[in-house]
Amino acid sequence: MTDGWIRALVEAIHSSPTQAVLYLSGGASQSLGSLMSVPGASNTVLEAVVPYSRMSMIQLLGKVPAQFSSRQTAEEMALLAYNRALKLSNPGSPVLGVGFTGSLASTRPKLGKHRFHLSTRTSDWMCFSTVTFLKGLRTREQEDRVSSQFLLKAIANACNVPATYASELSESEVPDECEVHFDEDQQLEQLISGQICFKVYPFSSEKDVSNSERKIILPGSFNPLHDGHLKLLEVATRICGDGYPCFEISAVNADKPPLTVSQIKDRVKQFQKVGKTVIISNQPYFYKKAEHFPGSAFVIGADTAARLVNPKYYGGDYEKMLDILIGCKRTGCIFLVGGRNVDGVFKVLEDLCIPEELRDIFISIPAENFRMDISSTEVRKSLGM
């Protein structure tokens, strides 16, 4: 696929801020060559996977699909790719998930139709297309070429790149297409239900945004957000030296009902006012947060650190606690620990008993750099909330 229009289209895709994960099966293989051979591919492609065998597809989907080449399978692949892109992308970058499954010409004549199903998923919309080829009109390589061109056009559309598309489809090969848009409430409902893993509100000003892939995350309920939170993240960012500072709220709580869409939106407004990025996730547990945000630095208080290493919160099983936190360590995550009141006594990291195997992932924030004695609970009480 060396056509000039294809190269120009891919260059435009690579110049856009969108980062993508692609899951392709049964065709459109030439699109990967086009994306990867044009300089700038690392700006766009986070990961490309070809689950070609039956078992590979079953493992990707986590089930045996009703049909391996179908609209439903392509949509499920695109949603998985979108969630994967969220986890791998730079903070605040728009992300795209692409799912493609085809049943194209092969060495043996097919009884069924030659067709492909393509789905693209972004934060606020999902697009789906099915193209049925005229049987016998093209070789396998030619069908792959046409499906690859169609896929590149779909990626360009998702990246808001104007596409000059030289279609090789015949007049009778009319794509069956549909598009579904999601408003903010629907996106948050999808998050609460577990359909998407998190949603980023990139409110940070330009000066706060780092090119680093590492996120510096301060988790909490932020009910309300106060100056202590802002100061703590600022100090933690200086200690890290490099990274994208952001706050994180879990819409799902381990021992409380999930936040409502209205509650989430109210809390998000606090961060918009101060120009700070906030991530809404659906994971209250740190070992799951580590999977969602690999390589991140989590900013926590000594009270949270004490709970993390307390076997009491792991059913009294010390080995289970070690195993879970070593799993966090394997994701490349670390914990920056600020001093907090623990059972009425101000404590810092050095006051805690951290297992030897975990000491390298806990980093102290010196009390002289930051000390927060007030909590959101106390702020609510003072405001009569």
Rank of each mutant, 00 (worst) to 15 (best):
M1G: 06
G4S: 15
A12I: 08
I13E: 00
H14A: 10
Q30A: 12
G33T: 13
S34D: 14
N43Y: 09
E47P: 05
V50R: 01
V50C: 07
L60V: 09
G62Q: 05
P65W: 01
Q67L: 13
Q67E: 13
E75W: 04
G92Y: 07
S93Y: 13
L96V: 01
L96D: 03
L104H: 03
S106K: 10
R108A: 12
P109H: 12
S119Q: 03
W125F: 15
M126Y: 12
F133Y: 02
E143T: 04
L151F: 00
A156S: 08
N157T: 14
V161R: 04
Y165V: 05
S167W: 04
V174P: 04
E179H: 12
E179P: 07
H181T: 09
D183M: 08
E184A: 06
D185E: 15
L188R: 04
L191G: 00
F198A: 04
Y201D: 04
D208L: 15
V209Y: 00
S212W: 11
I216Q: 06
P219C: 04
P219Q: 00
P224G: 11
L233H: 06
R238K: 14
D242I: 09
G243Y: 01
C246L: 04
F247C: 02
A251W: 03
D266H: 11
V274C: 01
V278D: 02
N282R: 07
F286E: 06
S296T: 09
A297W: 03
G301S: 09
V309R: 08
V309E: 03
N310D: 13
E319S: 13
M321G: 07
R340M: 09
N341E: 13
V342Q: 10
E357D: 15
D360N: 09
I363E: 05
A367K: 12
N369C: 12
M372D: 15
D373A: 11
I374V: 13
S375V: 10
T377V: 04
